[in-house]
Design a protein around this nucleic acid. Structure first.
Lengths: 135, 135
DNA sequence: CTTTACTGTAATATTTATTATTACAGATGA
DNA sequence: TCATCTGTAATAATAAATATTACAGTAAAG
């Protein structure tokens, strides 16, 4: 797993705190303490999904794309998700083994079930909720 | 995230299917289709946790360390877990930023909460349940 | 008691994934 | 027309996961 979820959450928390005011990618990268190009890349992703709005040019920057109350951690999770949370093995199990032949399908089904559980929990927490924890 | 969870699950499913009969690491590695040394490494971990029993020497091999009914997917998850499922960023957030200063703590708390949710779900599924899905 | 077939484990190489860096085109306001 | 931003791609550096090799130790079987 990579660090995209915590980084996206950090970005959205900052924007939630800033309200209507535009925040620059340099400020965001400085708070997270990562490379600005990397921050802009994640911002770009979140913008494509409508979670962030941007303004180009001088005095440009970012705001949330919708209210902090409307964005949940499930949205963040889905925005950055690449692989099932419990991991995927890169092997191809032996098709001549009764277990090997079917296990990938069974694991897929399990993962769908787990995802539902996780999404339900994450969907119950908004960015507003999360950001309100900060002083 | 790595592929240890599906691999451990595969191993335990095979042993559940074999019952009292000893299964060799080569057979296990062959079913998963990974390197035998890698399979033995994971087996070794599961054995240290009591999920697997082993017998050395000629005609040695492995069986489950307790009944398939007593092992849940929560045990498997905890056996292979290294990092929080939603990932950890490697940056150290800016301590001069109100959000940066506190976010790691808040993320930790969130992750503990998510883990509880996940463990509850995983704890409701036994290896027996999982293995029974196979022909 | 020696061969054979296993487990147990470490050391190392290879491959893949993640993150950082650099660079620059395009937009907009001053 | 300059300064300050976003947007994005290409590439380099680093870190993590996986594969491979090797061999010591143990127990059964002849």
């Amino acid at each position: 797993m990579n660090g995209r979820f915590p980084i996206a959450l950090h970005i959205l928390t900052l924007l939630s705190k800033s309200g209507e005011e535009l925040t620059s990618s340099d400020y965001i990268a400085g708070s997270i303490n990562i490379n600005p190009a990397l921050a802009r890349k994640e911002i770009s992703n979140l913008r494509n999904l409508g979670l962030i709005s941007s303004k180009e040019g001088k005095s440009g920057g970012y705001t949330l794309g919708k209210s902090a109350k409307q964005i949940t951690l499930a949205d963040v999770y889905q925005a950055v998700k690449n692989q099932p949370v419990l991991g995927v093995a890169k092997n191809t199990p032996n098709p001549d083994c009764p277990v090997g032949k079917q296990i990938n399908k069974k694991i897929d089904e399990l993962y769908i079930d787990l995802d539902k559980t996780l999404l339900k929990k994450l969907g119950s927490i908004s960015i507003e909720d999360f950001a309100n924890q900060f002083d």
